[in-house]
Each structure stands twice: as structure tokens, then as C-alpha cells.
Design a protein around this nucleic acid. Sequence first.
DNA 1: CGGGATCCGGTGCGATACTG
DNA 2: CAGTATCGCACCGGATCCCG
Lengths: 129, 129
Amino acid sequence: MSATNTRVPFTPDADGDCPVREVLDRVGDKWSVSIVVLLGRRTHRFTELHRAIDGISQRMLTLTLRALVRDGLVSRTAHASVPPRVDYELTDLGRTLLVPLIALDEWASTHRDDIRAARQRHDQDAAAG
Amino acid sequence: MSATNTRVPFTPDADGDCPVREVLDRVGDKWSVSIVVLLGRRTHRFTELHRAIDGISQRMLTLTLRALVRDGLVSRTAHASVPPRVDYELTDLGRTLLVPLIALDEWASTHRDDIRAARQRHDQDAAAG
DNA sequence: CGGGATCCGGTGCGATACTG
DNA sequence: CAGTATCGCACCGGATCCCG
């Protein structure tokens, strides 16, 4: 796609908003990605997600899910039963996000060692002065 | 995309580290993306970046550049001249990151209206309810 | 010009306790 | 089970001043 050279990504549009920022504000925060990927595999309940995502607090799970639902990436289905049951799953929109997310993951996996090596090199240089 | 079902992205490896997290910690913060994209177009000096990126403070530019250099995504070249001149440019590694970043940007551009619509729908429902 | 050091306010986020 | 409400701190990030 030669448009890469003509169009400037990540640039604010006429409204003064940058479309990537809206996405990265969601993707960038610590937990959204984990949730989206987990839901990409199957529907999860609240406590299932809580257990599956190591280290997340119940508060952050609530807030992150709420934001994902608001953005139309995740759907929330509450069943009126006792005990209550709430299912979270990806919307069609959420599923499309999975694609670039996995591309990013593959980049990360591929170059993880490069980054670590660069980091160690840099830190050693700093220590050596 | 049957790979989605077999490999599990974003999962901690044997070391207990999640490769995506290292990337997203860098990509996710407010300024790294802008810097990487700008440097993807050409080499920039410090003040050029400062002017080009609207709203960034000098402190954050310094800190973000330092982190990018540490991760081996950006190279820093100081010229011993008067007045001093420092050039920042993408490393080869940094240039490869540009690819998935642009993929994400295209997703954002494509679905920006969907997200906005979902958001407005959600907020109206909340106001009504 | 290209930063470093410091102060400081906002808020992200965890821990805890309570609710339907 | 699936949340809500409150407190408290850590840290992000902006503003300001200083230096080589």
C-alpha cells in the first residue's frame, strides 16, 4: 500500500482528534489487551476473567470492561438468574481489532530479544559511565 | 485465521514476562507513537520534535526519547559543534515497528466512527436510564 | 541548542469494605 | 456472583529554573 507514504498516520484530523489516540488510549492501558485477547478465544464471565488475568484488581476489571463496552468492542449480557450471571464477549467490531493486535504481538515476540539486548547494552554503558 | 485458536498471544512466557507488555508499555504511552512515526519520515532534531508534536512538554520529550533509545528503537547522535546538535532517527528495529503501528492506525481510521457511534449510543442510554 | 533537576498537582490504581 | 464506594498513595506529567 503506497498510501503509507502519502498519508500521514497518527495526525490529528480536521476535528483536532487523532484516531489512533482513541485506540491507543484503550489498547495502551495495561488490561484492555489481555481482556480482548481472552474474549477473542471465548465468552467469559466476570470472575473467569478475574482469575485468568493475573494481577488485575476487581476494580480495574470493572472499569476496563466498562470502557470496552462503551467503545462497542465488548458486549455485556446479564442473565436474570440466581446467582446472577454476566457474560462478556467480543462484538464484531472487537473481533476486527484482534487482527492488528495479533500483528503487534507477533512483532513483540519476534523482537523481544532485540529489545532486551538493547536495554542491557544501554544499561551497562550507563553504569560504565 | 485459525492461528488465533492455536497460539495464545499476550501470555506470559516461562520467564513470567509477557512480550507484548514490553511493547505496549512503550507504544501505549502518549508520545512514543508520535515520535516513532515522525522519525519514520525523516531524522529530527530535539527542537524539531518539540515543535512538531503538539502539546508535548520538554520533559516528556526527553524521557520518551530516552526510553526509545534504551529500547533500541531510536538512535541518538550528538554532534560536537557549537551550537550543539543532536539528531534522532529510527534504528532498523524501530523501522520494523512502524509496520504493525500503521496497521493499527488503519484499524483506528477505519473504525473510528464505529467507536464514536458506540460511545454516543452508550452515553445516551446511560443518561436515559 | 539540548537537555538536567526540582517542585507539585492530578489521577491511576490497589486494598478494603459493603451491596443486590 | 458481580459488582459499587471510599481511602490512600505512587507515579505521571506539566511548569519552572538551571547548566554545558
